[in-house]
Design a protein around this nucleic acid. Sequence first.
DNA 1: TTGATATATTATTGTCAACTTATATTTGGG
DNA 2: CCCAAATATAAGTTGACAATAATATATCAA
Lengths: 114, 114
Amino acid sequence: MKTRKAVIEPEALRGAATQAVNALKLLANRERLLLLCQIANSRSCVSELEESLDIHQPTLSQQLGVLRRDGIVNAERDGKNVYYSIRDPRMLEILETLYRIYCPSKAPGKKGKH
Amino acid sequence: MKTRKAVIEPEALRGAATQAVNALKLLANRERLLLLCQIANSRSCVSELEESLDIHQPTLSQQLGVLRRDGIVNAERDGKNVYYSIRDPRMLEILETLYRIYCPSKAPGKKGKH
DNA sequence: TTGATATATTATTGTCAACTTATATTTGGG
DNA sequence: CCCAAATATAAGTTGACAATAATATATCAA
């Protein structure tokens, strides 16, 4: 029974895969993943991230720049500081799944229920 | 209680992040993602994958070799063919999430409910 | 305006992952 | 045993990404 086989058209699947891979590439770096976890839990400015993640500032700003241009995060200036938060809800969903799978029996990155 | 802020200890979080990143790196490649999607949907041999994904055989075997050594997939020989399937259930969970998020209103890679 | 702090950008470099080409291994048929 | 098909492995090349170093921009305070 091949009828039940094709879940989605091949071209659409390729398009979806391209989108997914773009997101996955951004997550597939330890420091960047930790960074996203942190701002998913609480909006943070660069210097806070720098301290808690122990990443040099230019590297951090470079990574944040990529995430900003890709629409993954929001940047809001408040005085001298720039505060970052997650913008793309799909990223949050993936982060939640990763929490559920890899973090030893702890709650996910969202506050309330989901 | 401490603060309610720290969801997980920093070292444990780093360890979890390392694990997650290992998995994410394997997913963060379009051909490999499509490959995993296909064998998540139906156990396939190399030549089937080669045809449906349009990847050259050595590249394919190389990728499959990595996935095999990392315990992500199962390889079972049947005559001249080697059939691959997903071994790591965590990969399946991530794939399901990606389906849900990026595939336009279609069902996930698992048959039943979860 | 000047200085200090916070963040961003640019250029350079080093590392790693994936593709290609070529060759090796396994299996079944004759 | 020999051949062809299916799959795996190895060596060499290339390209992309991230870290570093240096510099630039923005904001506030004096």
